[in-house]
Lab assay of single mutants.
Amino acid sequence: MGMPNRKYADGEVVMGRWPGSVLYYEVQVTSYDDASHLYTVKYKDGTELALKESDIRLQS
């Protein structure tokens, strides 16, 4: 078993793309699913969504 190939840690605050949009919002990573390679993130309004790594970026 190798290390999970994840870029962002639980609790890390990053920018997540809103689905169907080009806009990124501040989100907190809450979990990562090794099987689906999706991150569960929480937006400031409390919305929780699963995002692909390509829809997440570090805060500038």
Results as ranks from 00 to 15, higher is better:
12 E>Y: 03
38 L>P: 00
59 Q>E: 11
16 G>H: 04
28 Q>Y: 10
47 T>I: 09
27 V>S: 04
35 A>M: 13
14 V>P: 01
21 S>K: 07
10 D>S: 06
54 S>F: 07
58 L>M: 12
54 S>A: 12
25 Y>H: 09
22 V>K: 12
21 S>P: 01
3 M>R: 14
46 G>R: 03
33 D>C: 07
6 R>Y: 03
32 Y>W: 09
40 T>S: 08
18 W>I: 09
47 T>A: 06
52 K>Y: 12
25 Y>W: 09
40 T>D: 03
42 K>Y: 07
45 D>C: 08
56 I>Q: 00
45 D>N: 08
35 A>N: 12
50 A>T: 14
53 E>T: 04
4 P>T: 08
13 V>P: 03
53 E>H: 05
27 V>W: 03
55 D>F: 04
10 D>K: 05
20 G>N: 10
26 E>M: 09
31 S>G: 14
6 R>N: 05
38 L>R: 09
41 V>W: 00
9 A>V: 09
37 H>R: 10
18 W>V: 08
2 G>V: 06
32 Y>P: 00
19 P>D: 05
2 G>F: 03
19 P>L: 05
59 Q>A: 14
42 K>V: 14
32 Y>M: 01
2 G>P: 15
49 L>M: 11
42 K>M: 13
58 L>K: 15
54 S>K: 10
33 D>K: 01
3 M>H: 15
3 M>C: 15
54 S>H: 11
44 K>F: 10
38 L>S: 09
2 G>R: 01
27 V>Q: 00
21 S>G: 10
53 E>C: 05
27 V>K: 00
12 E>K: 06
22 V>Q: 14
57 R>A: 10
47 T>Y: 08
38 L>W: 08
39 Y>M: 02
33 D>G: 02
4 P>E: 14
12 E>P: 01
30 T>I: 15
3 M>T: 15
12 E>I: 07
32 Y>H: 02
30 T>M: 15
9 A>G: 09
10 D>W: 03
48 E>P: 04
53 E>A: 06
30 T>N: 06
57 R>E: 09
41 V>K: 00
21 S>D: 07
57 R>C: 14
11 G>C: 07
25 Y>S: 06
22 V>E: 15
42 K>P: 00
30 T>L: 14
43 Y>A: 13
59 Q>I: 14
55 D>K: 02
17 R>F: 03
4 P>F: 07
30 T>V: 15
51 L>P: 00
5 N>D: 15
54 S>Q: 12
51 L>N: 00
25 Y>D: 06
56 I>H: 01
8 Y>T: 01
24 Y>I: 03
54 S>L: 06
38 L>Y: 11
16 G>K: 01
12 E>F: 04
19 P>Q: 05
20 G>Y: 06
43 Y>S: 10
38 L>K: 09
23 L>G: 11
5 N>H: 05
